[in-house]
Each structure stands twice: as structure tokens, then as C-alpha cells.
């Protein structure tokens, strides 16, 4: 099998796609945002429950490709219990990792397990998939009223 493909679809990504974490609506969420990429059809909602400055609970639902879904799943796992500040900082690091130039290194220590998504930048047409949930989360955290899309 093609090495890049193996790199992109690592087992952990396949697993998150099959059994996503925190994949449920949250009726009593304090914040909800919706992200939609109309050209490719990826469509998610991200739910947040904040307690002061801390993300007490986070979940998502919707549908999309393996890259978008596993990225959303890993995101919810990474952000639970984090402060607003920390969530924003992680968003920035993930954004940098996904949109870096092909072949450029990045600081894996800052993103933890999410480093598994590093291979996505080799697939420019898929960066939008991996980033959709993150931008949706940011809109839930810091609402601007804009429609979220990464296309």
C-alpha cells in the first residue's frame, strides 16, 4: 500500500472514525455551533458546556469523512477539562500543524496525540476536513455569528 496513505489513515484515525469519542448531541449544552462544508458535505455540530472558564463537557454529532470525524473525535477528547485559554492555544497549534508547508517539521510536543493528524498536510484537499471541527469549536467558544466553513 502507498506509504502516504498509510501515514494518513493510521489505525488510530480509523478507530476514531469507527468509534468516535463524545459523539452525541448535548441537549443541555450552553454553547452550540454548526460547521458545514457544502462542496464536500462534511457537516458537524459541536456542543460545549462551560463552567466559568473551563470546558466541563464537549461533544459533537453530524456526518463526514474519516478525516473530519476522527479529528472531531480527538478534539473533544483533548479539550475536555481544558480552560478557554488552553483550548484556543491548542486550536492554534493544530492549525499550524495542518497548514504547514509539506515536509516542514512541527513541534509535536504541543499537540500531544493529535500529532497523528500531521500527515494531513500532505493532502492539501483534505486540510479543510481536518480543520472543520476545530473552527466549529472555536465558534462555539467565541461566537461571532458567522457561518463556519473551511472550504
Amino acid at each position: 500500500m502507498n506509504g502516504d496513505i498509510r501515514e494518513l489513515y493510521q489505525q488510530m484515525i480509523i478507530d476514531h472514525n469507527k468509534n468516535p469519542k463524545n459523539f452525541r448531541p448535548m441537549p443541555d449544552a450552553g454553547r452550540v455551533a454548526e460547521g458545514y462544508n457544502p462542496l464536500c458535505g462534511d457537516h458537524f455540530k459541536v456542543y460545549l458546556k462551560l463552567e466559568g472558564d473551563v470546558i466541563r463537557d464537549i461533544s459533537f454529532d453530524g456526518s463526514g469523512c474519516a478525516i473530519s470525524k476522527s479529528s472531531a473525535s480527538m478534539m473533544t477528547a483533548a479539550l475536555k477539562g481544558k480552560t478557554r485559554e488552553e483550548a484556543r492555544a491548542l486550536f492554534e497549534e493544530v492549525r499550524k500543524m495542518l497548514s504547514r508547508e509539506i515536509g516542514k517539521p512541527f513541534d509535536a510536543t504541543k499537540v500531544g496525540k493529535l500529532a497523528i493528524l500531521a500527515g494531513v498536510c500532505e493532502f492539501p484537499s483534505r486540510v479543510k476536513c481536518a480543520s472543520l471541527a476545530w473552527h466549529t469549536m472555536l465558534e462555539a467558544l467565541e461566537p461571532t455569528g458567522k457561518q463556519v466553513s473551511t472550504e
Binding site: N2, I5, C40, A66, R126
Partner: peptide, 15 residues
């Protein structure tokens, strides 16, 4: 199966 069309597209593209 469960494979999303875009994932299929990417894998085929590399071929």
C-alpha cells in the same frame, strides 16, 4: 461499506 466517498477519492488519487 462505511468508507466515505472523500476518503475513497483520496486513496484512489494516490493510485
Amino acid at each position: 461499506g462505511e468508507a466515505h466517498a472523500h476518503d475513497i477519492g483520496t486513496i484512489l488519487d494516490r493510485q
